[in-house]
Nucleic acid binder design. Structure first.
Length: 487
RNA sequence: GCCCCCAUCGUCUAGUGGCCUAGGACAUCGCCCUUUCAAGGCGACGGCGGGGAUUCGAAUUCCCCUGGGGGCACCA
């Protein structure tokens, strides 16, 4: 095992979003590809918005995707605790260290002053930046105010000079430090700021590579300064592009499903979702499109990750999902699809299930659509004397239906294998041919008689999966209808 | 406003100075298969944002412009 250690650090303020899922995936891929370790860290420094149930749903979604971490609050590890809310003493020690080395100072400025300062600077066309008023306070003054209980924050004293690093995806990036104001390390409420907590955690957890979204790119400068001030070795950074909605803007709810849980509920397969997410701004170097997680791990290389933002393309995800659904065996599909059918009140018999699954397999884009296609096989189906029944008004139809009834009613058993269905259909067609009836007097009328619809599964699936008694009943009903018409 | 990142078909992308008449996939359209719908097969449509510079030669290198995105918090 190499010494590569990466982390996925979601904040539990909501469910797992596709964007975060991709960050998790990239970390997972990087870790596995290099034989390293993936740690899951919960960034719940914002107690007000962080919920334990969100943490649990994130962990569950990660598992569903197959992206298990090697260390984390759910599995433990040597570098815990893995929740920021439980790491307070570590942050406090860090702050004390920075205070002792004069890399940090207390600040007593009120929110009001900070806000007006910011407004002033913005109006003057400058970048908002703290003016270091409190940095110039005499030590006795600071001591006295602290003693008196004046609310204080602790700020980092941003050092002079440019700060640059080589991003794993973007290459060299440089920031001028005078564009960065003295940021807060510890809030008046005693909580620690994200940029600081992250550094203490990444250093403490021996993270070697930080792989995250591009929205963190400017944070990197701050974090690098902190590593230097803390005298800790800095990790390497890789910032992947963000996912946008079809309109080019930030991906949001108005673009449809955006959380992993929603995709799962709609009936996307985890393999398809992972495959799609991997392909979004990454490619294997050849022309493969359908890849297993292991194959992606094998070929994964940060330098092949695209620098530009990718638009979430539901059409392509749908295509991939269909591909994965079609790759399933009928037995597996029939089980996977069961809850979706049951939800719509569709329950199929033992011998029926697999035929039904096989019959609808090619139609499915998403599992949620299963009931719509499977309904013809159930008693839910109501055949009315609609326009479709007009298809029965063809010469020879009566003969065909009678032949079908005759042949099918004496078949052995209730449900049949697909191949038996095929053979049965052939028998019927042959029988019809024997009586001079063929072609359009058979296929469509038979379909309409059996389903009341002019489209649906292949006839042999219908014969195999409908059930002999249902077939006979529906045929009888159609025959009765014909009787009525001719009377 | 300031800082940072990005820029090839509608979308995801290949492309690292001549193999490019810019390749693949999704979507779209057409044909084939199929006595239905799909699936599948074949094909078509469709792109290097603009301007300079370097070079014998630029999608590929450099500069400017434009456009898009991100950041500038006592959020993460």
């Amino acid at each position: 095992m190499s010494d590569v250690r990466v982390r996925f650090a979601p904040s539990p303020t909501g469910t797992l979003h596709v964007g975060s899922a991709r960050t998790a995936l990239y970390n997972y891929l990087f870790a596995r590809h290099h034989g390293g370790v993936l740690v899951l860290r919960i960034e719940d420094t914002d107690l007000k918005r962080s919920l334990r149930e969100h943490e649990q749903s994130i962990v569950r979604d990660l598992h569903w995707l197959g992206l298990q971490a090697d260390e984390g609050p759910d599995v433990g590890g040597r570098y815990g605790p893995y929740r920021q809310s439980e790491r307070g003493p570590l942050y406090e020690a860090g702050v004390q260290q920075l205070l002792a080395t004069h890399s940090a100072y207390h600040c007593f400025c009120t929110q009001e002053r900070l806000e007006s300062l910011k407004a002033e600077q913005l109006a003057a066309g400058r970048m908002p930046k703290y003016d270091r008023l409190c940095h110039h306070l005499a030590p006795e003054v600071v001591e006295a105010r602290l003693e008196a209980g004046v609310p204080a924050t602790i700020r980092f004293l941003v050092p002079e000079g440019d700060i640059s690093f080589v991003d794993l995806i973007h290459g060299p990036i440089t920031f001028s430090s005078d564009v960065i104001g003295d940021f807060i390390l510890k809030r008046t409420d005693g909580g620690f700021a994200y940029n600081f907590a992250v550094v203490v955690d990444d250093a403490g957890m021996k993270i070697t590579h930080v792989i995250r979204g591009e929205d963190h790119i400017t944070n990197t400068a701050r974090q690098l300064m902190l590593y230097a001030a803390l005298d800790e070795p800095a990790p390497r950074y890789g910032h992947h592009s963000l996912i946008h909605g079809p309109d080019g803007g930030k991906l949001s709810k108005r673009h449809g499903a955006t959380s992993i849980g929603e995709f799962r509920d709609l009936g996307y397969l985890s393999d398809a979702v992972v495959n799609y997410l991997a392909l979004l701004s990454w490619h294997p170097g050849d022309e493969r499109e359908k890849l297993t997680l292991d194959e992606v791990v094998e070929g994964f290389d940060m330098s092949r990750a695209s620098k530009s933002a990718a638009i979430f393309d539901l059409d392509k995800l749908n295509w991939l999902n269909g591909l994965y659904i079609r790759a399933l065996t009928a037995a597996d599909l029939s089980e996977i699809v069961r809850p979706y059918l049951r939800e719509q009140g569709l329950e199929f018999a033992e011998g029926q299930r697999q035929v039904v699954a096989a019959a609808i397999q090619a139609n499915l884009v998403v599992l949620e659509e299963a009931p719509r296609y499977a309904r013809v096989f159930s008693d839910d189906l109501v055949i009315t004397a609609s326009t479709h029944l007009a298809a029965l008004d063809e010469p020879g139809v009566r003969t065909a239906l009678e032949a079908a009834r005759e042949r099918l009613s004496r078949a052995e058993g209730e449900y049949f294998e697909v191949d038996e269905g095929r053979a049965l259909l052939k028998d019927v067609v042959d029988a019809c041919a024997g009586q001079g009836v063929k072609g359009k007097a058979i296929y469509k009328p038979l379909r309409v008689a059996l389903t009341g619809l002019d489209q649906g599964p292949e006839l042999f699936y219908l014969i195999a999966g409908l059930g002999r008694s249902r077939i006979v009943a529906r045929l009888d009903a159609a025959l009765a209808y014909l009787e009525e018409r001719s009377a």
